[in-house]
Amino acid sequence: MSDHQHEHDYDHSELSETELRVRALESILTEKGYVDPAALDVLIETYEKKVGPRNGARVVARAWSNPQFKAWLMRDANAAIASVGYAGRQGEHMTVVENTPERHNMVVCTLCSCYPWPVLGLPPVWYKSAPYRSRAVVDPRGVLRDFGVALPAQTEIRVWDSTSEVRYLVLPMRPAGTEGWSEEQLAELVTRDSMIGTGLPKKSDEIAR
């Protein structure tokens, strides 16, 4: 198996042999008019919660319920996340940014080949669009409003641009009314959007316990 044969070259992008073949097929079929990549994306996005281990939700839930784990996560995110089960690609540094009443964090990303999907789940389709990226930087409050997220005027919004070296995970605020919940129950509240800062976690009454 020739997967990950370039694993040690950090200066350029990485795709496994399998990923190369899938991209080859998709680009041929798109050129020939057999598939519409936008339609594929829309379908795939409906499986947001069905792809990969989605370890981020468990990481967030543990940080909410265990102050020591949270301190570790803020100090050394890679190690803390790995302890929950996800070992990322080498050379990829995760940083956790914490939401507070004073500051809301939001992440933009180019969706390069090392987007941390095992932690965050599938990226949303609009995430890679240039208009989203530029507007998120210029008018983050307006972007959040479009997503139905209204933050108090005094809450500062900080936008983080993922680089080749650093990936971000937003640690959202724990929803009210979840005292005594188990990690499993808490993880149910953690959405993909809440971990990239374009949404908030579900409220305690939004899920069946």
Partner: peptide
């Protein structure tokens, strides 16, 4: 893939 710098789509 090989000509694309790490971090770019």
């Amino acid at each position: 893939c090989e000509r694309t710098p790490h971090g770019k789509p």
